[in-house]
Nucleic acid binder design. Structure first.
Length: 546
RNA sequence: GACCCGUUAGCUCAGUCGGUAGAGCAACUCCCUUUUAAGGAGUGGGCCCUAGGUUCGAAUCCUAGACGGGUCACCA
């Protein structure tokens, strides 16, 4: 079974020996000691004392943490224990712990990985490290699994993702990333609250998947007897709230998409979507810049961040380039090609891009954009005025009906946000759903949007002119923490099931199948076991044949 | 879904031409009362990812599969 290896057995027997000594290896009612950071602040003065008196025996302090290193030198030992703030060194020896405790308990039964409580006074070692001189040591929780090696640590990606707890113990920067993530989410929430937005929670289980083009996960509600879809986006519900009179709402939550996984896609991911009545997409771009300024100020981040081999300058205002302009000025696509369906198709083929000849101009432009522009958008850049045919939920521009009043924000060559003036014409929305539904029928396109009649009905009651935006939180955290895989900013990323732990089959004689271990000996060559008593074995084998 | 790479002791990794397995750390037994990846002496520890195949003989070569990483495709 999972705990039957030699190292674990050794540790389990140590826990047992603690019990025999009357010590519970898993005691209750343990309180957290002084945080390590506080220990260093509080006793910094000890370092300033006279050279031969660098200690303060008048103080008694308790620290709690996990043992990360132990160095035993005969009758004295140093260890480093780690709490959520960091590492602190402790020192303990035979004469300053209770009688017999050092030799029988502390030295023998406490080991790397265990969580302990150490009580003593602060002193400074010969090498100048502020350390706790222990008068008492207690076990807080016995670890029966050994930790990975102290120098190289844990590098196996699979174990790091599957056993994130171990990753966090061994790789402190991982914890830093997730603390940063938590702060970013908290700041985003506060920013929108401060701007008068109301946080809401809309359904995660949708009767009709909507708000994006994506394959949904399907589940079943037994009592209602109906299938439900894990939401691919909250958009249509948030807009219903706008119809209902909530003029500024946001939701930070998970979306689920039943699609491929790679460095920027996890089947469940976090986004914020927000909807702002009586505002337009230009207001959204300004708000987005303000949000970045706020996050950078609160986190005290420099305006220029390193991302891989890129330097990203987050100084606001961000660049704004229209979609078609970006094709030519950034993508280097000739001007006549950028606005011509046939020439665009030909240009794509010339550059080795496989394209469907039936694509409309907007889709051809989207291909050109993906191929020649996207990766070049390093500094934050708003791309504005998208082709209408790739923007099914956006409002049409009054000046140019082929253009949607929409933008996307790119940085480090990746899309990070998408916002637009919301389509609020119920009949237009009905027709666009219908077109999508027909496309679904005709081509079997699993990603095409479903007709959502209730949403159309809601729009029928009148939705104020509204601008809405979604920001991918995971990707944003990647940018701000210099992580290059979405798995590194999601605590428990999606993984295939681990091969199940199985109880090993009982050892049995290869000839007769005898499972009595006392009568077995291991095979001299190769694997398996044989009976010690060959004669009995032969008898049993004969009987088995009958 | 396609292709490339990886999988050997608890961890990090070697393993030559095909000859049945090695190191460091960790563990165990000793020595060591101010160490910093502490040090010194000794010992134990392996389903070489799985299943087939080739071979007198496979960690090593071949086939299939599992899991992970990467690239691409799909997906915004």
């Amino acid at each position: 079974m999972i705990f039957d290896n030699q190292y674990i057995q050794e540790r389990i027997s140590k826990a047992e020996r603690l019990r025999q000594e009357g010590i519970n290896p898993y005691p209750a009612n343990v309180t957290k000691g002084m945080p390590s950071s506080e220990f260093f602040e509080h006793f910094a003065y000890v370092k300033e004392l006279d050279a031969d008196e660098k200690k303060d025996e008048s103080k008694t302090v308790t620290l709690t943490g996990r043992i990360k290193f132990i160095r035993i030198m005969g009758k004295a030992a140093f260890a480093k224990i780690e709490d959520s703030d960091g590492l602190v060194q402790i020192y303990y020896n035979r004469d300053d712990l209770p009688e017999g405790y050092y030799n029988n308990i502390a030295k023998k039964l406490f080991e790397v990985g265990d969580i302990i409580e150490a009580t003593g006074f602060p002193f400074v070692t010969q090498t100048g490290e502020l350390t706790l001189h222990c008068k008492d040591l207690k076990i807080v929780s016995k670890a029966i699994m050994p930790l990975p090696e102290k120098f190289h640590g844990l590098t196996d990606q699979e174990i790091r993702y599957r056993q994130r707890y171990l990753d966090m113990i061994m790789n402190p920067e991982v914890k830093e990333t997730f603390i940063m993530r938590s702060k970013i989410v908290s700041l985003i929430r506060r920013f929108f609250e401060d701007h008068g937005f109301l946080e809401v929670e809309t359904p995660m289980m949708h009767p009709i998947p909507g708000g994006a083009n994506a394959k949904p996960f399907v589940t079943h509600h037994n009592a209602l007897g109906v299938d439900r879809y894990l939401r691919i986006a909250p958009e249509l519900y948030l807009k219903r709230l706008t119809v209902g009179g909530m003029e500024a709402v946001f939701e930070i939550n998970r979306n689920f998409r039943n699609e491929g996984m790679d460095q920027t896609h996890n089947p469940e991911f976090t986004s914020i979507e927000f909807y702002w009545a009586y505002h337009n997409y230009h207001d959204l771009m300004k708000l987005t810049e303000d949000l970045f300024d706020y996050i950078f100020a609160e986190l005290q981040l420099p305006k220029t961040l390193t991302y891989g081999d890129m330097e990203i300058d987050f100084t606001t205002p961000f660049a704004k380039v229209s979609f078609v302009e970006a094709l030519t000025t950034i993508g280097g696509v000739p001007a006549d090609v950028a606005t011509d369906r046939e020439k665009g198709l030909a240009y794509l083929k010339e550059h080795g891009v496989e394209v469907n000849d039936n694509l409309t101009l907007g889709y051809v432009q989207a291909e050109l954009f993906d191929e020649f522009v996207e990766a070049k958008l390093i500094n934050p850049t708003f791309i504005t005025d998208y082709p209408i045919d790739i923007s099914p939920l956006s409002r049409r521009s009054d000046e140019n009906p082929e253009i949607a009043e929409r933008f996307e924000l790119f940085m480090a060559g990746k899309e990070i946000a998408n916002g637009f003036n919301e389509l609020n014409d119920p009949l237009d929305q009905y027709e666009r759903f219908k077109a999508q539904a027909e496309a679904k029928e005709a081509t079997g396109d699993e990603e095409a949007m479903h007709m959502d009649l209730d949403f159309v009905r809601a729009l029928g009651h009148g939705m104020t002119p509204t601008a809405g935006e979604g920001i991918g939180i995971d990707r944003l955290v990647m940018m701000l923490t210099n992580n290059h895989s979405i798995r590194d900013v999601i605590l428990f990323p999606a993984m295939k099931p681990e091969a199940a732990f199985e109880e090993k089959p009982k050892n049995a004689c290869k000839k007769c199948g005898n499972t009595n271990e006392e009568e077995l000996k291991p095979a001299k060559k190769g694997k398996g076991y044989f009976c010690i008593d060959a004669a009995e074995c032969a008898k049993r084998a004969k009987e088995n044949k009958k």
